Every structure is written in structure tokens, then in C-alpha cells.
Computed example of a mutant assay.
Amino acid sequence: MSAGENEDAIERAALLLALRQRGLRDPQVMRAFEQVPRELFVEPAFRRQAWRDQALPVDCGQTISQPTVVALMTEALELKPAHRVLEVGTGTGYHAAILGHIAGHVVTLERFRTLAAAAARRLAGLGLSNVEVFIADGLLGYPAGAPFDRIVLNAAVAEVPPALFGQLAPDGILVAPVGPPEGTQVLTRYRRGIEGLERRELSLVRFVPMLPGVAAVL
């Protein structure tokens, strides 16, 4: 093992320990984090920081979220192998890979063609044939695949778009960072119950804003 690989192994072990110390208890989620090589999903310039618990910049002005936030969001979804999941904001495909190791089928939407194409290559390289990447306006969701058992937003919204709530199955869960696009948001979980949507605030977070439409060039 090279010095770089040894350093990666140490930082990876430290990150997994940090996830446990922060209360991550779902064995499926922990197993997914162990299986997905985060170094494949970061830019080459940040390769040495791949296993640190921090957000990192990626192409098109986007970010790959810090692992502890991804873990919190994933655990809040209460995923099961039979679930169909809609992810809005593919980015590099890292969160989609985590989801794909747990859920039966994942549809992930990205507005930037460059990011979508690169993510699709990474996911295919990992053998995650149950994850489909589409170029689409995430604010509109993916009606052709609805309803979804779980929906997760990887970008901030002032309010969750009605179209996404409309694609959530009965007893479904939606997790999103809700709040001012340029400020601090509240990671919020919604569950569709018999009497309507049940709302629960989870944590303060900072995400890039969700933008409408499909990017014209990138």
C-alpha cells in the first residue's frame, strides 16, 4: 500500500467512526458508506481531501455535500430495498451511489449535462444498474416514474415545490434543505400520513440553491 493509499485508509476509517459518533445507527446506511469510494466522486484537485468530512466544489458551480450531511439525509429517508427513490440534484453521483446500494430503484435528476454524463459513467462503473440519471428540471420532478416512496433534494429550496409533493407515495418520505437559498437552511423531513404531511426539522445546513430549468450549455 502506497503512502497516499495508507492516508486514504486512515481518513476513511476516521470518517466512518465520526458517522457512528454522530449517531448514525442504520446498518444499511453505514454499509453503503463503506462500499462507495468517495474519491471517485471528487475533482482531481481535491482527491486528497475526499474522505474528510467537508463539502467540496465540483463542476458547474455545484458541491459534493459533506458525508455526515449525506448520512443524516439518507438515514432520515428510512430506506428499504423495495423502495423507489427520486433524487433531485445528482451532482457527481455520490449520494445516488449511496442510495443505490440500499434502495431497489433510484431515479436521479440533474440540470447540468456535464454533471449528468459524468455521474452516469461513475455509477455504471460501480455496477449500479438500478440507478438512472436523467437531465431534467428537478423542480418538476419526474412524473413518468411517480409515485416515489422516497424523495430527496440535494439543493436548497425556499419551499418544497408542489410537484414533488404530488409525486410522493402514501406513507412516503421527502427530505429537503428548506430556507433562504443564499443563507442557512433547515434540513426538513416530510412524511405523507393519513392526515396529510407531517413535518420534522432535523438540522441546520447550507446547500447551493436549486435552480429552475435545464442548463443551456453545461
Rank of each mutant, 00 (worst) to 15 (best):
residue 146 A to F: 00
residue 97 A to Y: 01
residue 21 Q to L: 10
residue 32 A to K: 06
residue 1 M to P: 15
residue 136 A to Y: 01
residue 4 G to C: 11
residue 144 A to N: 06
residue 113 R to T: 14
residue 212 P to G: 09
residue 107 V to M: 10
residue 16 L to F: 05
residue 98 I to V: 12
residue 158 A to M: 13
residue 5 E to I: 06
residue 188 T to L: 07
residue 126 L to V: 08
residue 79 L to C: 07
residue 133 V to T: 08
residue 187 L to E: 04
residue 154 N to L: 13
residue 76 A to E: 06
residue 214 V to W: 00
residue 40 L to D: 13
residue 203 S to T: 13
residue 77 L to R: 03
residue 173 I to C: 07
residue 69 V to M: 04
residue 162 P to H: 02
residue 33 F to I: 07
residue 150 R to A: 08
residue 26 D to R: 04
residue 109 L to C: 11
residue 218 L to N: 14
residue 171 D to M: 11
residue 184 T to Q: 11
residue 169 A to P: 12
residue 212 P to A: 00
residue 22 R to Q: 11
residue 105 H to F: 06
residue 141 G to R: 08
residue 103 A to C: 07
residue 148 F to W: 08
residue 215 A to S: 13
residue 41 F to C: 10
residue 29 V to R: 03
residue 46 F to M: 04
residue 205 V to H: 02
residue 151 I to M: 08
residue 5 E to C: 07
residue 116 A to Q: 12
residue 112 F to C: 15
residue 28 Q to H: 12
residue 142 Y to Q: 15
residue 139 L to R: 13
residue 23 G to Y: 00
residue 216 A to Y: 09
residue 140 L to S: 14
residue 68 T to L: 06
residue 50 A to D: 01
residue 173 I to H: 09
residue 166 G to L: 01
residue 114 T to G: 08
residue 12 R to S: 05
residue 22 R to F: 02
residue 196 G to K: 02
residue 112 F to H: 14
residue 25 R to I: 11
residue 60 C to H: 04
residue 149 D to M: 05
residue 15 L to K: 04
residue 125 G to V: 06
residue 190 Y to P: 15
residue 98 I to R: 03
residue 133 V to Q: 03
residue 82 A to Q: 15
residue 189 R to C: 08
residue 142 Y to H: 15
residue 46 F to P: 13
residue 31 R to E: 13
residue 213 G to I: 00
residue 9 A to E: 10
residue 60 C to W: 02
residue 81 P to I: 05
residue 93 G to N: 03
residue 153 L to P: 10
residue 192 R to V: 06
residue 99 L to D: 07
residue 135 I to K: 04
residue 169 A to S: 12
residue 199 R to A: 02
residue 93 G to K: 01
residue 49 Q to S: 15
residue 55 A to Q: 05
residue 117 A to E: 15
residue 42 V to G: 04
residue 72 L to D: 03
residue 97 A to Q: 05
residue 39 E to K: 11
residue 37 P to M: 01
residue 182 E to K: 12
residue 3 A to N: 12
residue 188 T to P: 14
residue 57 P to F: 00
residue 199 R to D: 03
residue 154 N to C: 13
residue 184 T to S: 12
residue 21 Q to N: 10
residue 147 P to N: 08
residue 122 R to P: 12
residue 85 V to H: 08
residue 93 G to P: 02
residue 183 G to C: 06
residue 127 G to M: 01
residue 181 P to F: 00
residue 84 R to H: 01
residue 154 N to T: 15
residue 182 E to Q: 14
residue 113 R to V: 08
residue 32 A to E: 02
residue 166 G to S: 14
residue 40 L to H: 11
residue 65 S to Q: 02
residue 1 M to H: 14
residue 160 V to I: 11
residue 105 H to T: 13
residue 32 A to S: 09
residue 143 P to I: 03
residue 168 L to R: 07
